[in-house]
Amino acid sequence: MSAEGGSAKRFVLLGTDYVYPRTTNKILRAFLHSKGVKDEDIMEEYTPFGHSDYQTIIANIKKFASAGKKTAVVSTINGDSNVPFYKELGNAGLKATDVPVVAFSVGEEELRGVDTKPLLGHLAAWNYFMTIKNPVNAAFIKKYQDWAKKNNVPNADTVVTNDPMEATYVGIHMWAQAVEKAKSTDTDKVIAAMGGQTFKAPSGFTLTMDKTNHHLHKPVYIGEVKADGQFNVVWKTKEPIRAQPWSPFIAGNESKQGL
């Protein structure tokens, strides 16, 4: 919405038809309302799982975008449907400079199976990108690539790291730290030791586990797709953000903000 982000005034909320996109879009709609975006400038569309024919939806997006205001697409399309979606987008001539698509579930691993030329400049939001430059991340990538080569993972020479891998890596290390602190693997004792654990993560920050809700405090990165299927970080938070399990933009969650 900022000038930096392209000053989008209209939003297409596009997702696969299940609970995650529906909830995300409910929160997004409430957030956009709070920023003064009216319902007529928001288009919400859902597709069934495994949907592979995005012709009609892309035509609708084009129609929606031609109303004279800068339009952006927020995509929560799940898994395999992304390839047909982006292919169709490229072939229909919608470039990132016209209608940028920001995806919440497309990362390095997903882009391995995609011809990235038509995707150049589209965006993704994650807590970690493989391109982040710091010694911890370099060591993390090296370790994973060596492991893949040693264990003959298919296509081992092109393996990539991504956000879910980093999250698992951090999580298992924090668990190990908590076990050491609790001096036991007993579930209840480990849970008690878990809150407040910190770990120096490949994302370049020392992450903390929240004492009350046991979510991680994480940085947020926005990256643009590069031609090689990696991301160019164009925006990031200055420090890790505390996770809020209950969105403050949805009515009825007011009493749960302390959690």
């Binding site: 072939n91 001539g93 199976g113 995609v114 011809d115 030329k117």
Partner: peptide, 18 residues
């Protein structure tokens, strides 16, 4: 043989665009 991930098949340039 090919791994569990999807593999990348590119459109030839004469089939890109519209």
């Amino acid at each position: 043989l090919f791994g569990p991930q999807n593999v990348q098949v590119d459109n030839p340039s004469w089939m890109s665009g519209g």
